[in-house]
Write a protein that binds this DNA or RNA. Structure first.
Lengths: 156, 156
DNA sequence: CTAATCCTCATACTTTAGGGTGATTTTTAA
DNA sequence: TTAAAAATCACCCTAAAGTATGAGGATTAG
């Protein structure tokens, strides 16, 4: 059932086109009879088909063309000193709140020991946070971490 | 040559009859074909029109409609203004060219060893420069030196 | 409930950074 | 030219940073 449904959904246009053709066949047969009687209906018939299928072609083209996606990077200038946290990057890099906190203090020039005291945790804890941060930011040193984080607007 | 001519003359009627039969067979076959085509000519004609005008419709749609585009605007925040080196501070703090050079590389996240290699000097030389820099900037660590220097517009 | 994160901490070890001291060689400016 | 500043380097030592591994408690999403 799921497969059928899926098939129908995916090939909706093709199915519709098929149904339309079937309907046309019936119409043809019916018109054939009429043709016997009305000799000059042929031009009208041909014209109708032309118009109908032109419309069908247009509809198909509009339905089936994939819209192009154009990414426009709009540059927004900010005043000096205006920091806007890039939350998308935080999510992308999977950086936790605590790690960000450590990163900030690190960028302010605090030593690991000072950060530990400020956050009421042990020095080892800060070191662990650092290691995780360096991993996530793909850097090797705190100075690089600060540089990268600033570029990504993770810290001011 | 004489033989052939003789044969044709003697059996003229038979040959003609044979030829006529052959012609008739051809005619029959041709009529049969024509009959078949005549029977279905209408459908073929209609089908041709349908296909042709479907194509025409598609072509029209693609030609005459603007290409479907979805614009995705991404805001990129850029800080207004460029970096202007604060020479007064450099003079005030009495920081030499070489020291500034080291400071810059330091802020880019390079280790002392990397800076030494880049500037073709020994690791000890870089350490000496650092010590002088920290003294002049009145800081204790490289991270603080970077912070302070950025605030003073000594480095970007 | 439970699997997955997150935060925490420890131990042991290596590497890098920084402090102190002293010295030599360029460069620069009076 | 000559003293001052700048740049270079060495050695020794300590402090801080970073790596690796393991592990327990708290929180949270499925």
């Amino acid at each position: 059932m799921a497969n059928t449904s899926n098939f129908l959904t995916k090939n909706k246009s093709i199915v519709l086109y098929g149904l339309f053709l079937a309907a046309l066949l019936f119409l043809l047969k019916w018109l054939e009879l009429r043709f016997m009687i009305m000799n000059h209906a042929f031009e009208i018939y041909a014209g109708s088909i032309a118009v109908l299928f032109t419309a069908l072609g247009i509809w198909l083209a509009l339905k089936l063309t994939k819209p192009k996606t154009i990414l426009i990077e709009k540059e927004v200038f900010t005043e000096r000193g205006t920091f806007i946290l890039n939350e998308k990057e935080l999510i992308r890099l999977n950086i936790s709140k605590r790690e960000l906190e450590v990163l900030k203090l690190m960028s302010e020039g605090l030593s690991n020991q000072e950060i530990a005291l400020k956050l009421f945790v042990s020095l080892n804890t800060i070191k662990t946070h650092n290691a995780r941060l360096f991993e996530k930011l793909e850097v090797k040193r705190r100075t690089q971490a600060i540089e990268t984080a600033k570029k990504l607007s993770i810290i001011p």
